[in-house]
Amino acid sequence: MADHEDPRLQDEGKFDEIRRRVAEVAKDAPPLARIALEAMVRKHNPDLKGTADSAGRVGMRSGKVSELTVIVDLKPGGAQRLQRIFDLTKGNMDGAQRVSTLHDMRFVFIDHNTRILFATAYDGDWDSYISDFATKIPELMDLLFQNVEGWPGISSPTVKDFIAEHQINAAGWFVANPQVTVVDVRRMQRTEHALDTFFDAMTGRDDLDPKTAAAMKTLTDAISTPEAVDY
């Protein structure tokens, strides 16, 4: 939420402000109206439908996918220690994979490596599984976050408050496939492989009974045509 005013606008006179706002609205009006109209008249495919919900205590959610953005101070040398961990993992992080609700995690050092921006897209409410992290992967959590000033430790009763206090609500949040969780995607990948194997076994079969043949045709028709995204 834009709860802090832009300091560059502080010296703007009342008349200037009105003139600026009128100009802004006039300029933005045609595309804004088009976006709003499209949103109203389009009948969205329910599988691709996004929402603007709350992710619980802080953060936004679209469909099943939520966002979490945190900016925190790093301890002296914390950026170097974290960089070593990231260099070691080379894009893989087994603990994060096992969690199975995290779509991604982004770590960005800012302000001359004195602070870190942490951003993640994940399934569900932000704090549903935090207690599970505390007993299942406490070492990974503390390894990553002990470099953060004030980190109370994943087992601390105050860890949720610490995260919530440093979280910044996103102003906007868009997800391409808002109704699909990390777990769903894995199942779909698995299903894809299984279907491939199944179709290999069925290729050229002209001895199927009519009922099975009809079911096969329905299945083939449903999944074999390349389609543009009907959003």
Binding site: R98, V99, S100, T101, Y129, S131, D132, F133, T135, K136, I137, V183, R186
Partner: peptide, 9 residues
């Protein structure tokens, strides 16, 4: 379970 869960808590 598909998601990392500690059933004991």
């Amino acid at each position: 379970l598909t998601i990392l869960t500690d059933v004991n808590i």
